[in-house]
Design a protein around this nucleic acid. Structure first.
Lengths: 234, 234
DNA sequence: CTGCCAACTTGCGATAGCGCAACGTCGCCC
DNA sequence: GGGCGACGTTGCGCTATCGCAAGTTGGCAG
């Protein structure tokens, strides 16, 4: 298991503003994990031993309800962390983390990370604001789920994914995730059927270009108009 | 503005496990605020200066969507904190905090609290796990909102409120909050009409006893059965 | 190249939940 | 001890969304 490079870690949100000495210390405590596509970093309801920062690849976080329905909680791109909340709370993982492609992550276990936080107070502060940010995101999503129609929620979700992992190309912005209709449905709290119909409508209207596991936004402004419920902008 | 008693603070989640010296230090930095019913601790979208721990009274946290719809995020009972996440994230308050009755809170501003955390690492750890717990709650609520029917969500919400502020009485457990149908609707992402109809049904069935701003759970097990979607228990 | 399978689509009937409108009713304030 | 306003209820028509069933399609494995 190779030793992570402190320089590579320094770019991550979680470690922003830490000095080189601190980074060395933190990196020395990390464990690298390499997974193939389809393998799991951890499974829902296992004891939360270790959290990770993703260095390479993509990760899908999913949650299964007691009665077997699946929900996609979010996607993780390189530089982002996952599992932190569960480890800090000393709980069980509330969701599963699956590598969507060959992925590399660095991990720290709870006690180790707590020691690191005590040595580097900055780290505690950073962790707090990252977790606080998660709270905001979930709160926003809650509000959406309870007050907005499906179409609007899907629009918002696509825009969010665009920000997180969009690539500009000649005919619009492409979402760099192999997104199934099912995935979108699970992210927006609806069904495959409805997602399919909505996307078909937008395709019709020239707003997006959608294929198998592929979505390209051609007219982001139209999507924003739908998300914000503006007058159907000319 | 009277000085808070350290002994009173020590019972709060946020300060669990801190020694007397630390408590003195923390209490010395607190500011007491007394509000009448209907007054606000803070308003949504103000700069998040200060967070509070509630000592007495009850507080309602609400969020207003850009297009004017209101959502009840949660209720705060004595011993609980609110505003912490916003202050730590150095943001704007994402919601408003209204005193439902005459209320007393102790407050700390961000810089002060960060100093305190640096002096007492335990405090940082406690803060982290409290915030982490919030993440869990919101995540659970998200899952509910996207996978469950209204009836089930209402059942769950009542049970949750029962845990948070229920008083056992001869004919069942009473929820000690002046809960409007509107409030319940805003907590569960539905409408007054639907809440009214559902509660009427349960009243009919003898599961609850509901009046103006008053809900008593007579058969908690039946409500659990609904929440968990069990066979309509005999 | 071909066949197969997962992903996607679409018609259609079913229904949960919405929300207006109109009406009860409780309790508090003067 | 009225009367008023907030809260609660209910009938009713409406539609967004669901979800089955029965397809079509794209792309990859062999």
């Amino acid at each position: 298991m190779s030793r992570p490079m402190p320089e590579r870690l320094a770019v991550f949100d979680l470690f922003a503003g830490l000095d080189a000495a601190a980074m060395d210390d933190i990196a020395a405590a990390a464990v690298e994990r390499r997974l193939d596509a389809g393998e799991m970093f951890f499974l829902q309801s296992e004891r939360a031993e270790r959290f990770f920062v993703l260095v390479d690849g993509r990760v899908r976080l999913t949650q299964v309800t007691p009665d077997g329905q699946q929900v996609v909680v979010r996607f993780i791109m390189p530089g982002e962390g996952f599992g932190l909340v569960a480890v800090l709370a000393g709980n069980v993982y509330p969701l599963s983390a699956e590598a969507m492609d060959p992925a590399v992550g660095y991990g720290w276990d709870g006690p180790t990370f707590k020691t690191l936080m005590a040595r580097h107070p900055e780290l505690a502060t950073r962790s707090l604001s990252l977790v606080a940010q998660r709270v905001h995101e979930f709160q926003a999503r809650n509000r959406e789920l309870s007050t907005e129609r499906v179409e609007r929620r899907i629009a918002r979700t696509l825009l969010r994914l665009t920000n997180q992992s969009g690539t500009r190309q000649s005919d619009g912005v492409r979402i760099d995730l192999p997104l199934t209709r099912q995935d979108v449905a699970e992210m927006t709290g609806t069904t495959v059927y409805t997602v399919s119909r909505v996307l078909a409508g937008w395709h019709e209207a020239g707003i997006i270009d959608a294929g198998r596991k592929r979505i390209v936004i051609r007219q982001p402004h139209s999507l924003v108009a739908i998300a914000e419920d503006l007058p159907p902008a000319r």
